[in-house]
Design a protein around this nucleic acid. Structure first.
Lengths: 344, 344
DNA sequence: CTGAAAGCGCTAACAG
DNA sequence: CTGTTAGCGCTTTCAG
């Protein structure tokens, strides 16, 4: 039995992974030098670095990031917490984040709250336990416990999607204004009987904010602002259902303002199947600016939100912060654009 | 200056986070007991557990998972590596995985290869450094270096999407058979001039496998099997482009077999905008069974792949393995279903 | 530019 | 059921 074998048995090591120490021995240097060669290549002589890298490759060494992270109390992990992956909006934001953060050497820890604030709290707690370099959350609304946790966190917190009183960094858009914008458009087009259709508005409070903006404008014009609330979050299916409910509950309706494009497009396609003319019989508008809406005929009137750009900007601002650069503003409004189609 | 303050200065601790030791002191027990109370509540007396939990809450203790992971050489991290988030197929698989794995207390580390095998290798290496409990990868095709790494990994490897010679666990479907199935359908419907349209087939080799199945059937029927390859992966936009290219390059075409539903739906909607009748002027088929295809008129003929179910099954099988249960089979065929619409 | 010592915060293993 | 001891594999710190 070799000494190495003996040591392996004597020690508590469960994994037979190659360690930094073994690389060091193979390269004839100290562990510290290997660490430097790998993490701060410029702080080591060319010759040494070459030897070390050679040994690393030969032994198939894979650095133990857990150990590194514990020792340095830093990690290349960034937590991303979203309420859902079913809504493509969040997926696109994640994509934007990934674009910027993966290139900078960070890994994304993904959490899904399913619109449950208690679940969100648990995720934040868990992710903080991983010493994440930053926490990215969709939305500004958190449970009390979660808020406390976040407020005392040492790492930067980025809240995306909407704008408002954020804990730290904030990239998003003004959903109330977006709601107002679309309502204005509909009123300007001459519609008087306008229904807003959303889903689970107590959960999806950004859609609720848009409704509030919508109602504000309608009431200012002396119009009613009826609301139809669905059970299922955005899907084509739900949109068809929303259309049916509006037609039966508010038969005089001329235009429907849907909380998002999935619902809007679903309603538009359903209307066509039923032989309804859009916008003559019923006008339809959505929110988000998904590709789908621009490929159907008539094109869906919508408000384009720069989702992926939002993710990218959030990622970039976080990088600035993490690399110690000056962060000019904590809050970034990415804006939105009304995109009129032929559906209104 | 209190003793605690003095210790804090003397020690190397950078974070002022509450530690398990402090909780132990507050609860009047040893650190080990706190650890047990938290991780194996049943191995501790009710009274002790109560005291400990009380102190945990009072001090706002957040367990350091990095330290725990290093000490136990296990982690509640599971790596998920996909080639893209733009393709909703992967998003749905991730959703299925999340459904099962988050409930079991695992966190997902998400990596995106962007269809680059070298990038995949880097991600696998990094994720192995985090001592992930398992690695989930989309696809069976890896670089040589990556294959070596995976083959020597101690944690379970789950390869999803397609079926074949897997490293370890495998959940997916037979894409060649799916290609054959759709080709059969088209030939049976009487089409003789059929074009297959895919995008970046050298990257998206599952689409390539479907093409191979498609070609096999067409050639067996004495038909040509022309291929049109696009630059951009599945999108409605690209589908419209695909249609245009087919019409100009193969004017006699009667039916188009698209590599996925995004392309198919995009082409279908574009055809309608151009006043082409579907399927009379041009028949269109897709793959995946996305909701969109079933909401447009005519409904898109497609093959439904159980994406979310695939993710869930993969998650469940992994859990079985991780909890030491007997894994009956390493390979699971989730199958597919031809869903004829009116577009063919 | 390189090395030695001293932990990071937690848990496995053993002992009581 | 609870405590003691000895690390996990790496990096910080400080000294050369």
């Amino acid at each position: 039995m070799s000494k190495a074998d003996f040591d392996a048995i004597k020690s508590r090591r469960r994994s037979n992974q190659v360690t930094l120490g073994q690389v060091a021995k193979a390269a004839g240097v100290s562990p510290m030098t290997v660490s430097r060669a790998l993490n701060h290549p410029d702080k080591v002589s060319d010759q040494t670095r070459h030897n070390v890298l050679e040994s690393v490759k030969r032994l198939g060494y894979v650095p133990n990031l857990v150990a590194g992270s514990l020792a340095s109390s830093r990690s290349s992990l960034i937590a991303v917490i979203v309420p859902s992956l079913s809504n493509s909006v969040f997926v696109e934001v994640i994509k934007g984040l990934q674009d910027t953060l993966e290139n900078e050497g960070y890994q994304l820890l993904l959490g899904n709250t399913d619109y449950d604030l208690d679940r969100e709290y648990e995720l934040v707690r868990t992710f903080m336990g991983w010493s994440c370099s930053a926490l990215i959350m969709a939305g500004l609304r958190h449970s009390e416990a979660c808020h406390t946790l976040l407020a005392n966190a040492r790492q930067p917190i980025m809240e995306v999607m909407e704008l408002g009183a954020s804990l730290d960094l904030n990239v998003g858009l003004d959903h109330t204004a977006a709601g107002r914008c679309m309502a204005h458009h509909l009123v300007d087009r001459g519609y008087r009987h306008i229904v807003y259709v959303g889903a689970r508005l107590s959960d999806d409070y950004r859609a609720l904010m848009r409704y509030q903006g919508h109602r504000e404008i309608l009431e200012r014009s002396g119009l009613e602002a009826p609301l139809v609330e669905l059970e299922t979050l955005g899907s084509l299916e739900a949109g068809a259902l929303g259309l049916a409910r509006v037609l039966s509950e508010y038969p005089a309706t001329q235009a429907i303002h849907f909380a998002n494009d999935d619902l809007g497009a679903g309603a538009l396609l359903a209307a066509q199947r039923q032989g309804l003319r859009v916008p003559e019989d019923i006008a339809i508008a959505g929110f988000n600016g998904l590709a789908l809406g621009q490929h159907i005929t008539p094109r869906l009137t919508t408000i384009v939100s720069p989702r992926q750009a939002m993710g990218r900007l959030a990622g970039q601002e976080l990088i600035r912060r993490l690399t110690g650069q000056r962060v000019h503003r904590k809050r970034h409004d990415v804006g939105f654009t009304l995109q009129p189609g032929e559906s209104t």
